[in-house]
């Protein structure tokens, strides 16, 4: 514990002073979870809360990375220090992953930018914890905006992107992409839409589909009291067209959030979600431990023998859990 605390403290101090290599290390420690990650969260939390968190999501191949890369080119020119967290799925079988998002960002990103790839299963705490942890670290050491890019395929990915201050959903013409996005629950979380590959036939149709869905306000849930309606940006990420307009839309959304007090609301909600996720994880770890000990195994056996109802066993175990004096840490 002390040793973890020591390493975390040193690495954090170095990262805070601008050491990029230390930041790379810090992100690994956060991703890994456990005592070091907790210590880093303690250290970083007071420094965080300044960066604008932007989620970018969409179907595979929609051009998210290229679009993000274009923002990485644009932002340093305007004195921003952007960071990107690119989240890609791991193989469910082996836990390995191929993370390829840097390819279309690297060339464009300058010295003041920072790109980090993360696999969905490359850490033990769950994506819902690792992502906020990494974003907090970027925020604390002074990166702003912090962009989190996920493939909008699973609920967790959508949740992660949706928990940003501003969420950008990228669709492409054809393929009923807008419809797919709707099905995946992406439309509900979108603050801004990008129709990428806008030079393609069907781009106007994609735009119209989106407008139509936005008109049905019950689908979007976005057209709030202040009258914010998600704008639709037409882009061609390959040559950078639309990157300016996208950034403008992001900035406008930020102003809107700040003017209406929604920024604070969103952040409050996000922190609350993080506490819940953490609590959930700890409770699960504890529950697993209690289930595995002698009493737990005995109770399970009684349930199997039909001598005790599952509800009764759960209630007895919950009692044990809550009175247990053992440390409440997750296994990490």
């Amino acid at each position: 514990m002390t040793q973890h605390g020591h390493e975390a403290d040193t690495v954090f101090a170095r990262a805070l002073a601008g050491d990029r290599r230390a930041l790379g290390r810090l992100l690994s420690l956060v991703e890994r979870g456990g005592p070091a990650a907790e210590r880093i969260t303690e250290l970083a939390h007071p420094h965080s809360g300044r960066a604008h968190i932007v989620g970018i999501t969409g179907a595979p191949g929609a051009g998210k990375s290229t679009l993000t890369g274009q923002l990485m080119r644009l932002l340093p020119e305007r004195s921003f220090r952007p960071a990107v967290l690119a989240v890609d799925p791991s193989s469910p079988l082996t836990g390995g992953a191929i993370l390829g998002d840097r390819i279309r960002m690297d060339d464009l990103a300058g010295e003041s930018a920072f790109i980090r790839s993360m696999a969905t299963r490359g850490h033990s705490g769950g994506l819902a914890l690792a992502v906020p942890g990494a974003l907090r670290v970027f925020d604390a050491v002074g990166y702003d905006p912090v962009i989190v890019e996920t493939v909008g395929v699973g609920q967790v990915e959508v949740d992660v992107a949706g928990a940003a201050d501003t969420t950008v959903v990228v669709v492409t013409p054809g393929w009923g992409d807008a419809v797919q996005a709707n099905k995946a629950g992406l439309l509900e979380v979108a603050d801004i839409f990008v129709v990428n590959k806008a030079d393609r036939p069907g781009a106007a149709d994609a735009r119209r589909d989106l407008e139509l869905m936005l008109d049905l306000s019950h689908v979007t849930g976005q057209e709030d009291a202040a009258g914010y309606r998600p704008p639709i940006v037409m882009a061609q990420a390959l040559d950078g067209t639309g990157a300016d307009a996208l950034w403008e839309a992001v900035a406008e959304h930020r102003s809107h959030l700040e003017a209406t007090g929604q920024m604070a609301d969103r952040r409050r909600r996000r922190l609350r979600l993080e506490v819940i996720s953490r609590l959930d994880q700890m409770a699960q770890a504890q529950a697993a431990a209690v289930l595995a000990d002698d009493v737990g195994r005995q109770l399970l056996g009684e349930v199997e023998q039909r001598q005790m109802a599952p509800t009764t066993a759960a209630a007895r175990l919950a009692e044990r859990l809550l009175t247990d004096r053992r440390s409440g840490r997750g296994t990490g």
């Binding site: 191949g61 990375s65 290229t66 191929i98 390829g100 998002d101 390819i103 279309r104 060339d107 950078g240």
Partner: peptide, 10 residues
């Protein structure tokens, strides 16, 4: 014309 960078399809 710009320069082409392929996306990672591995």
């Amino acid at each position: 014309f710009g320069r082409y960078v392929e996306r990672a399809v591995v």
